[in-house]
Design a protein around this nucleic acid. Structure first.
Lengths: 146, 146
DNA sequence: AGTTCCTACTTACTAATAGTGACTATTGGC
DNA sequence: GCCAATAGTCACTATTAGTAAGTAGGAACT
C-alpha cells in the first residue's frame, strides 16, 4: 500500500499531490500554465500594465492574458489595481506570496536556457530512431535489455 | 524595443522564452504538464513500471500516462526499457538530464505543500469579494487606489 | 480445447479548454 | 462629429484532455 519512505512523509504532512483531490495539485495546475509562468516572470521585478504584458509575452491573446491574470490574482500571487481613468489603466504587481514562487520559476527558466541543446538533441535522436524502426522492424519493439 | 536589463541578458544569450518561436518554450510546455511533473517526481528515486506509475498517480488514464512517458522519453528526461515477456514489462528510469530538472520540480512541490493554505485563503477571499461587488456595485469596478 | 487473465498499450469518441476575431465603453484631441 | 487608445467581453472554432472499449500473445485454469 505505502511504497517508499518519501511518500510516507508526504502523506503524514497531510498534503500529497499524487492524490487526485489534494489541493496542492491546484498549485501544480498553476505552474502547469505556461502563460502564468511567463507573467510571473515579468512581474518579478516590476509592476506592469496589461498592454505592456501583452506586448512582452509573444503570442498571448487578450483573452488568455485576462484569464491568466485573473487566476493569478485569485491565487493571491499578483495584485490588480485599476485606475478609473479614460482610457482605463490597470496595474499588476507581484505579491509577497508570489515572490516566493517566482524565484523557483526563474530557476526553471535558467534550466531551460542551459539544457535546451541537450533536449533538442534527445528529440532529434528519438525521432531518427523512431523513423528507423518504422522502416526495418515490426513496430512496437524498440529497446531490449537483459 | 528592449525594455529592461534582465531581458537584454536573455536576448544576448540567444534564448528567450518570451519569444513565441524560442525553443526554450518547449521546456515550459514540458513542465507546464501536470502529469509530466508527477511522473518525474516518482522516478526521481527509482525505476518504475507502467502499472506502478498509474497506480501511484491518482486520476491518470492509460492514454495520458503513455503520452506523458513518450514525451518525457523524447525529451531525454527518462529512459524506457521494454522486456519482451508475456505479459509485457516496461520499465521507466530517469536520465542524468532528467535528474537535473527533477530537483527543481521537487522544490515546487515543497512550495505547494508549505504555501497551499495561503493560496486557498486568497482564493476564498477573492471569491467572497467578487460575490459582494456582484450584490452591491456595478460590475467591473473592484479596486481603486490613488 | 477453450476460456480467462495479465500488461502495456491503441483507437474511436466525447468533453473541456485554448485560441481567434470582432465588438464595447469612455473621453480627450482633431 | 469622428477617431484613437486601453482593458476588456462575447461568440465561435481548433486543439487537447479525458473516457471507454479493444488488441496482442502466452500462461494458467476448467
Amino acid at each position: 500500500m505505502i511504497e517508499n519512505s518519501d511518500r510516507v512523509l508526504q502523506i503524514s504532512s497531510s498534503w500529497d499531490a499524487y492524490h487526485t483531490e489534494c489541493p496542492t495539485r491546484l498549485v501544480l495546475n498553476r505552474i502547469a500554465d505556461k502563460w502564468a509562468v511567463l507573467v510571473l516572470g515579468l512581474l518579478e521585478t516590476e509592476t506592469k500594465r496589461f498592454s505592456i504584458l501583452q506586448r512582452e509575452i509573444g503570442g498571448i491573446s487578450q483573452k488568455m492574458l485576462t484569464q491568466t491574470l485573473r487566476g493569478l490574482e485569485r491565487d493571491g500571487l499578483i495584485a490588480r489595481t485599476i485606475f478609473p481613468t479614460v482610457p482605463p489603466k490597470v496595474e499588476y504587481t507581484i505579491t509577497p506570496l508570489g515572490k516566493t514562487l517566482v524565484g523557483l520559476l526563474a530557476a526553471v527558466r535558467v534550466w531551460s536556457e542551459t539544457h535546451i541543446e541537450e533536449v533538442l538533441k534527445a528529440q532529434s535522436d528519438y525521432d531518427k530512431a523512431a523513423q528507423e524502426t518504422l522502416n526495418s522492424e515490426a513496430p512496437g519493439v524498440r529497446t531490449v535489455r537483459f
